[in-house]
């Protein structure tokens, strides 16, 4: 693999940041990184994706950080993640100024209410798709429900939930427990 220039890395991630919509960013990333640029092969990308899902933070941003790091070290990571985020940050900021000047308009309120309702559907669908395995395994499902109820029902601080449920869950999936394959990454890299 030839070492790509920082400009090339910036260009590729900027383009994805500007043209991918609605949570499908990882699929676009795979297309560019594996198929067009051939920066990683399928296994390399899967490894990056699995680690991205395990780590906190946005999947797409983590994929950019890890891929950039593989290509050109920490500077590559910084260039990739920044380039991926800049178009969306610029556009959402611009939209917010428009929104600010239109605030109070019934049209804007109802339009955004419609977008919000659709966004609920998007999160629900993504949760079901990524969590197919966790939602069908009794023990995993119990952990999912415990997490959701602690946060959503009782308002337990997120830090305690991550430490408590996360720690307990890792112990329950300990080596030798026979409950270790997560099978998450492979299910969601197909482009929308």
């Amino acid at each position: 693999m030839n070492e790509p220039s920082f400009a090339r890395i910036a260009g590729v991630f900027f383009k994805i940041g500007a043209t991918s919509f609605g949570g499908g960013v990882v699929a676009y990333l795979r297309g560019a990184i594996v198929e067009q640029e051939k920066w990683l092969d399928d296994d390399g990308f899967l490894r990056v994706l699995e680690l991205s899902q395990t780590l906190p933070g946005l999947n797409a941003v983590n994929v950019a950080v890890l891929t950039g790091d593989e290509l050109r070290g920490w500077r590559g990571a910084a260039v990739a993640a920044t380039s991926l985020l800049v178009p969306g940050l610029a556009l959402v900021t611009l939209l917010s100024f428009l929104w600010g000047s239109l605030q109070g308009s019934a049209w804007v309120t109802t339009a955004l209410a419609g977008a919000a309702a659709a966004a609920v559907g998007l999160i629900v669908a993504t949760t079901i798709q990524i969590g197919r395995r966790q939602l069908t395994d009794p023990l995993d499902l119990a952990l999912v429900v415990a997490t959701a109820v602690a946060v959503g029902g009782f308002g337990v601080d997120l830090g305690w939930v991550v430490l408590g449920v996360g720690g307990l869950s890792i112990l329950l999936h300990r080596p030798g427990s026979g409950r270790r394959s997560s099978e998450r990454a492979s299910s969601r890299v197909t482009p929308a």
């Binding site: 899902q53 969590g131 997490t147 394959s181 997560s182």
Partner: peptide, 12 residues
């Protein structure tokens, strides 16, 4: 990896 998956789904 497998242990954090249900936490992630629950938080989502």
């Amino acid at each position: 990896e497998a242990g954090l998956a249900p936490l992630a789904i629950g938080l989502m």
